[in-house]
Design a protein around this nucleic acid. Structure first.
Length: 189
DNA sequence: CCCTGATTCGC
DNA sequence: GCGAATCAGG
């Protein structure tokens, strides 16, 4: 893949929007985030809204001089994002009697938990199929802490999929936990 | 461990 | 110019 004018445009646009290099790379396809970052620098675009991960304008006096003699290739297998449409409201209800989620992360005031976008629910439903189904003890900072099932039962587990960085849940569950302000249409009451 | 961008340097 | 390897940090 080469940096066609078109691709560069997308790059500029996304970078400007604060998208991460990896996201941009994924979008463009055929390139790694390193490629994106490298291009960004060459283009002169550099710092921007330092969002998300990090941004160090720090100058590293010492860094390399070891251009790897390793002939290691990265199998960048492009994976499309399957948009699965399913429907079946999962009842991941956590009894109020006990607080099981180890709160280590901010649990924002969950709005109306009753009005969740069908899409989000569908996504969750889908995700729960491939969930790791881990136990409480297996929870780590990087595992989705979304509870599934009844804690009083043995059919209870935590999603366990990789969390969305900075969030307590995986992407799908973040979707239902943190409803976008935009999706809050009232349901006529 | 996941992620982020920054830098170097062989190609 | 390109980008993998590597670094540095959250």
């Amino acid at each position: 893949m080469s940096w066609t004018d078109d691709r560069v445009e997308t790059l500029k646009k996304m970078w400007g929007e604060g998208q991460s290099a990896s996201q941009i790379a994924k979008e463009l396809g055929g390139v790694t985030r390193n490629a994106v970052i490298g291009k960004v620098h060459r283009l002169g675009l550099s710092n921007r809204a330092t969002s998300g991960g990090s941004a160090k304008a720090e100058a590293k006096p010492k860094a390399a001089a070891k251009a790897a003699p390793k002939a290691k290739a990265e199998p960048k297998t492009e994976s499309a994002e399957p948009k699965t449409e399913a429907a079946a409201p999962p009842r991941s209800t956590l009894p109020a009697r006990k607080q099981i989620i180890p709160a280590g992360q901010p649990l924002p005031p969950q709005p109306s938990a009753n009005e969740i976008s069908p899409e989000a629910l569908a996504k969750v439903n889908e995700v729960e199929k491939k969930a790791k189904k881990i136990s409480l003890m297996e929870l780590t900072e990087r595992t989705c802490k979304w509870p599934v099932g009844d804690p009083a039962t043995e059919k209870f587990w935590f999603c366990g999929l990789p969390v969305q960085q900075g969030k307590p849940y995986c992407e799908a569950h973040v979707g239902v936990a943190f409803q976008p302000m935009s999706a809050r249409r009232d349901r006529r009451r």
